[in-house]
Computed example of a mutant assay.
Amino acid sequence: MTELLINLDVPDLEQAVTFYEQAAGLRLRRYLFDGSVAELEGAPVPVYLLHKEPGSAAVAASGLRRDYAPHWTPLHLDLVVADLDSALARALAAGARLERGPTDEAWGRLAGLRDPFGHGLCLLQWRGRGYDEVAD
């Protein structure tokens, strides 16, 4: 079996902990590596917030630098929630920015957001059997 961990680079660790606690209902479990990493629990997989300064090297062997300007990567977080409207209100109050929606889909409802650090994330509320509603 493979174990899955989620790691998010953030420029301000305390702000990120507060955001994900308030917006996603996660809880701080502990700090690691001399306080430069926060482990959050409350999801099916652990979420690690890694303090990384803006402009620091993203990968040692490349010229890529961390940039926390708004961005969307092919990999993002989807948070499945019981009540999209309540979850959206919490996320916005915690500092998220609404990028799309909420929209109604055959499988449920969707709101596209950006966290305070530029990362894209979606809130999903299932309808009926969720994605199975549209499976072939």
Rank of each mutant, 00 (worst) to 15 (best):
A106Y: 09
P44M: 03
L110Q: 08
A91K: 02
A93T: 09
A38C: 01
R66T: 04
V80E: 13
V81Y: 06
D115L: 04
R109A: 03
L98C: 05
A106V: 10
R109E: 11
L92R: 10
S36A: 11
W107H: 06
L88D: 07
G108R: 05
G25P: 11
G25C: 12
L77A: 09
A111H: 01
L98P: 02
A93D: 09
R29W: 02
G55R: 07
L88W: 04
W72H: 14
L32D: 07
L64T: 10
D67E: 12
L92F: 03
R66L: 15
E39M: 08
D67K: 12
K52H: 11
L26G: 07
L28F: 03
P102M: 00
W72G: 15
D83A: 12
T73H: 12
G35F: 02
V81T: 10
R66I: 08
L79K: 05
G42A: 03
E105Q: 14
G42W: 08
S56R: 13
A58L: 15
A91L: 07
S56A: 13
D78T: 08
G42N: 08
R114Y: 02
A61N: 11
L40H: 01
S62V: 12
R66W: 12
R65I: 04
R97H: 05
H51Y: 09
V47K: 02
S56F: 11
L84E: 02
P74H: 00
L84N: 02
H76L: 11
V80M: 08
L49R: 00
V81D: 10
T18I: 06
Y68V: 08
L26N: 06
